[in-house]
Amino acid sequence: MDYYLLTVCIYVVVGIIACWGLNLQFGETGVLNFAAVLFVAVGAYTASLFSLGHPTPASYQQYFWGTSLPWPLPWLAAGVAGGALGLLVGLLVLRRLRGDYQAMVLLVVSTMGTYLVSADPGLLNGSIGLASIPAPFKSELHTGQVGYELFYLGLSVVTALIIFEVLRRINASPLGRVLRAVRENEQAAEAVGHNVAATKLMVMVVGGAVAALAGAIEVQFIGAWAPAGWTYPETFGLFAAVIVGGRGNLGGVAVGAFLVQGLFLEGTVLLPNFGNPDVIGAVQWMSLATLILLFLWFRPQGVIPERQRRFREGQPGPLRGLLPAQAFARVGRGQQNA
């Protein structure tokens, strides 16, 4: 039971990180990244390739390239790969398309990824997927299974906290205001001189890197990764978590990820068996869909809504207490990044 609970905890942390990545794109900036799960997958595959070692002809699984690097490097590589994918996809999709077109193209890009990986068994072992991906420090640490899970949970929680701090700072900075401006009204943001396309591209890169990191954490824990695990409905699971929790609020999104990823998608496994395993799968997704509908109807702002930000006279603002030159530099940087 400890073992199972710890496993679910790690899944929840992974879900929270992935949802934070999506929240930066969808919650803060309004980019409908319907390829969210593709970024998780790319992170997972990258981390696998960077930890599996060179493929040998004798091996039972095929992949095009691989190396074996010590722990933080596979995760970092995954982050870089996620960012690169965000850049690539962003350049393809965000350029001249309207929001809803973007969403659809991203969704198709996501299924395309599934098809590509499944179609070519030499690339990433096709639809069977990669397996026996080594877990970091597992051979060095002489602990039992539960002890190791505890260690891995700690590792992922620390990573999550670092990501949280980075995202919190982005939100609180002038750049965060630009993101929200783009979300609320693209034309207005453009009119006051912000580069909307570049802003969206930036959140695709940063959010993509965060989601990829979630994939890396997940894959080194479960040790296997196959196309069936990242089909597009998973993306809706992530969106559901962001909406249920409260888009634009990091804490809220974490609660949403806990509710959706933990209680709905993992917790239903604990339900008494109805005799037919198909039934559980159907009930799982049906209840998730009902949850989405209920929230959209009755509480579209989510469990913990985004904090209303107000400007008040005399309140210590982000520029207060700085020398004028510093303040100008900060404002300038915010606009430059925009």
Binding site: P233, A289, L293, L296
Partner: peptide, 12 residues
């Protein structure tokens, strides 16, 4: 965005 999610939910 909402209609997309609603239709997904209906489909599911």
């Amino acid at each position: 965005i909402m209609s997309l999610l609603v239709m997904f939910a209906v489909g599911t």
